[in-house]
Design a binder for these strands. Structure first.
Lengths: 212, 212
DNA sequence: TCATTTCTGTGTCGGTCAGCACAGAAATCT
DNA sequence: AGATTTCTGTGCTGACCGACACAGAAATGA
């Protein structure tokens, strides 16, 4: 983001010869498929259709590009999950949508398997630990958002009072994170959907099915 | 393993100046902590207390060393889980031990967090995909061992007839895999133990608590 | 004793990594 | 038009990667 679009006129010098957003989307897919370390600059520039200096001019560095790619992932692939937490009327409905949507998103045909925020930088050298910690932070924020939604359910009365929301969120988080690994290992969508439904059944008996 | 110990005598040439098993144990810890790609030859040789040519003479290559390290991990850190599947009297007891032992092993003080078989080679470049596929195979074998134990439970009558053992195993596997990621993210032993107990409670209501 | 075998330490190999220097190209501003 | 600004393509750089050549050291066998 070196040049800001000025109101009422194009930027000064030679215009960029590629679509920054489209290139970022390609970079996201490469990082998603290969991980932060596994994606080389050569693979990124090839997929993005640009040369290395253009990438550095537009995005700063490999790590900054990765951070933007993760944000784009959250804003596109992660919308259904994010919206479920804010829009579903009950905690149970939110959990159901999150589980089912995760099963779907982790096994979308023609796309990399597993959630990018889980699988893109789990193990890496110390030199790249910032990228790993960055994704770890996103996972923790997801946990906290889920916990907040469960606490809201307690306040709303659709989750039993006295429920250990942190423990419930940790349990659900473990299932959700595990689904990504299993998707990477080749689990089918049907298997992940069964796991989602199993977890939902467990939810009903652990934290009370909602009574319509 | 270039020289075989001959019966009734030492091997011919200059004896190895280091303990092969001890060096392998150090290598296992490095791979466990940093992952296959994240661990460099320099970090490995430093931890093992040997120079690069000695490593290659004794283990063949980085990848062969990794395979031996994973086997050692399974034979040491994984024994409690493996034994639970063969020795516990009921499927429920086996599942309980596997869950609790995983929570413990993933948060052992002074050791890398998470299960090595889950976290050591999830995302890597195509060049190192053999290592990733190798670990994926170990995970699938773990799944199958768990599924067989549940099927045994059905035959023994301590798991309800008609139980979808594959689905139950996939659900448990997702929890177990997810626990490793959460351990890597800094989850405490107490949190993982709570997740294990939550999962066990779910097991009881999903597949029937055993009646003593 | 001395040839043979095997391991160790130094040094280095080709390959690849992320990142950038530099000059030319393409736009706007005066 | 000419100056200025910004982007693009070629090609390179130092660092690091896994792996190994080579000679010397340390053991055994004859």
């Amino acid at each position: 983001m070196t040049t800001a679009a000025r109101p009422g006129g194009r930027p000064r010098g030679r215009p960029r010869g590629f679509d920054r957003g489209a290139a970022l989307a390609r970079a996201m897919e490469v990082f998603w498929a290969l991980g932060y370390e596994g994606a080389t600059m050569g693979e990124l520039t090839t997929a993005m259709g640009i040369n290395s200096p253009s990438l550095y001019a537009a995005f700063g560095s490999k790590e900054e590009l990765f951070r933007e790619a993760v944000a784009l992932y959250d804003a596109t692939e992660g919308t259904a999950v994010t919206r479920a937490l804010s829009e579903e009327p009950t905690a149970r409905a939110a959990v159901a949508t999150v589980l089912r949507e995760t099963a779907r998103a982790c096994t979308e045909p023609g796309r990399p398997t597993g959630c990018m925020i889980v699988v893109a930088a789990l193990n890496c050298s110390q030199a790249n630990s910032p990228a790993r910690d960055f994704l770890s932070g996103w996972r923790r924020e997801g946990d906290e958002a889920l916990t907040r939604r469960l606490e809201q359910g307690v306040r709303d009365g659709d989750v039993p009072a006295g429920t250990d929301t942190a423990a419930a969120s940790a349990f659900l988080g473990a299932v959700l994170h595990g689904m990504s690994i299993r998707a990477r290992d080749g689990a089918t969508r049907a298997e992940l959907e069964r796991t989602a439904e199993t977890t939902l059944t467990a939810w009903d008996v652990l934290y009370g099915a909602e009574r319509p």
